[in-house]
Design a protein around this nucleic acid. Structure first.
Lengths: 120, 120
DNA sequence: ACGACCTACAACTCATTGGTTGTAGATTGG
DNA sequence: CCAATCTACAACCAATGAGTTGTAGGTCGT
């Protein structure tokens, strides 16, 4: 296995990264705070019971997923969440809703039509 | 470290499981198919270039996250996706949208008001 | 009853993850 | 200039992930 197990389709791989990045409570908390406004990595780190390096890694995961952007300001890196990345996931879920609704529609149609066999 | 790194809050832990379950392309494909209708585990397994056991594990991950339910029918297990689990994630993302919009509102308010110091 | 089929689960491998500590490069304030 | 601060990154460790093969127990069709 030269390339592990990840999705080959780059679009799917991006979704993989997005959802994986959001699947950690600390990272979701970082997203919440950086949606409200910019925060330096160290100011974020002070909020959590773990090392600076650990929080830095969490920020890096969010950054690789495109959920967060970093802007250098002097010796600090200001972290800010990008709502469009969140919307990408929201659109995916909307697709699932649509698929499900499609099934419901088919079921409704079956129930509505009188019982018949195959069509010509 | 007696309990690894997982979220302690059970609600957060549930979100962890939901998002992690959706962070794999194969699992998302299983969700798409089982939203359309029931499928046995082996019929699902035939769709993917991996062993039956691997697909069985993917289904188990989705099941633990509450995204999918299984119903025994004879020797088969019929797998069906639960749209409400997907909606749980959608609601979470809506919260992020709301937070972001709150920041926008505050920025708009700042831009709208004439430059002044503190208020009375 | 028997073989074919579906499922569950254990055991194993390999890669990744989340955490740690430590080191080093920039930048700032006094 | 110097010390403090912020960041980046490497090395390491324990735990989990995704995949495999193999074994065993139900259920179905003939």
């Amino acid at each position: 296995m030269v390339e592990a197990h990840a999705a080959v389709d780059p679009a799917e791989a991006h979704i993989d990264r997005l959802l994986h990045a959001l699947s950690d409570a600390t990272r979701r908390d970082i997203v919440r705070h950086t949606l409200r406004g910019e925060h330096s990595v160290s100011s974020l780190a002070r909020r959590y019971p773990m090392s600076f390096a650990a929080v830095q890694k969490h920020v890096a995961v969010l950054h690789r997923a495109g959920i967060v952007s970093k802007q250098a300001k002097g010796r600090e890196q200001l972290v800010r969440a990008d709502i469009d990345a969140v919307r990408t996931v929201a659109r995916l879920l909307d697709q699932y809703e649509a698929i499900w609704r499609g099934r419901m529609d088919r079921i409704d149609a079956l129930l509505a039509e009188p019982e018949q066999g195959a069509d010509p």
